[in-house]
Design a protein around this nucleic acid. Structure first.
Length: 269
DNA sequence: GGCCCATGTTCAT
DNA sequence: TGAACCTGGGCCT
């Protein structure tokens, strides 16, 4: 699940469920037992996201810094918490809401200064209204690295993962292997603006949809389809399948230990 | 039950 | 560049 839109949605959901109220905290799994003990009973003040990092603020104790990594998952909602299972790293609970965190890469109590250090090493986040694509373009336009690698670099853009990377490059007809410095300013501005829109929609719907109305199966006169990760996409995990736009086979290749997907016809070098 | 894979990151070599 | 870490779903036997 976790690209930036997931984390911003989790921040909003935490605010809705807990903000301004004392919460019970526990670590059924045990790996965050000390931290949970320190926040147990404290007032949950706010939650904030920057890229794929989630910060949960507690009165008088600082922040819980959560990074889901590849496997981390939250289950949360109103109502009584289900019986905890042994993989729950952190459970927050109020009389009428609960949030269970499993499998995160990071779950730690940090200070304001440590939180600031995280912000400082991250690039601009398309989902933070005070950020824009300027600093990102400054890096991209100076780099010989591929635009595919740059989009995944959290120092360049915070919050983009493997799905948004593949999809935004498809939507702009950009070959993933093009060097960052060969992108025009106009191309970058369009990519950034598109990320803002796509990721905001991702937060609203809690899933990634990238297919334009004119390319839906209905509009193209093709049978309906279902992507196995819950959203409608052009290329992500569609290797060997026909491109929704041109019909060519979607290609895949490894790039820095991740799978890259693109349409060689729609994204010409 | 076992194996592979995954929307991520860091650290060692 | 590769290994390590964390979990769960799908597919195989």
């Amino acid at each position: 699940m976790p690209e930036g839109h997931t984390i911003h949605r989790l921040a909003a959901d935490h605010r809705d469920l807990f903000a301004g109220r004392p919460v019970r905290a526990s670590s059924p799994q045990g790996k965050f037992a000390d931290g949970a003990a320190l926040i147990d009973g404290r007032v949950f003040e706010t939650a904030e996201a920057h890229g794929k990092h989630l910060f949960l603020g507690f009165a008088g104790t600082g922040w819980v810094h959560v990074h889901l990594g590849l496997f981390g998952k939250y289950t949360l909602g109103g109502g009584q918490a289900p019986p905890p299972t042994e993989t729950v790293r952190l459970r927050l609970a109020s009389p009428d809401a609960h949030a269970d965190l499993r499998g995160p890469t990071a779950c730690a109590l940090i200070t304001d200064a440590e939180k600031q250090a995280v912000h400082d090493r991250l690039g601009p986040d398309p989902l933070r209204p005070e950020h824009d694509g300027e600093a990102a373009y400054a890096r991209v336009s100076r780099s010989r690295s591929s635009v595919a690698a740059l989009l995944m670099d959290q120092k360049v853009v915070a919050g983009v993962g493997n799905v948004y990377r593949a999809e935004v490059l498809f939507r702009h007809g950009v070959d993933p292997y093009r060097a960052g410095r060969d992108l025009t300013r106009a191309e970058w501005d369009a990519i950034w603006a598109d990320l803002v829109e796509l990721m905001r929609e991702g937060v609203r719907n809690n899933r990634i949809d990238t297919v334009r109305p004119e390319h839906t199966p209905e509009a193209m006169g093709r049978p309906p389809r279902v992507d196995d990760h819950g959203g409608e996409v052009y290329v992500y995990r569609r290797a060997g399948m026909p491109c929704h736009v041109c019909g060519d086979a979607i290609r895949t290749a490894g790039l820095a230990a991740r799978n890259l997907f693109w349409c060689p016809e729609c994204q010409r070098a």
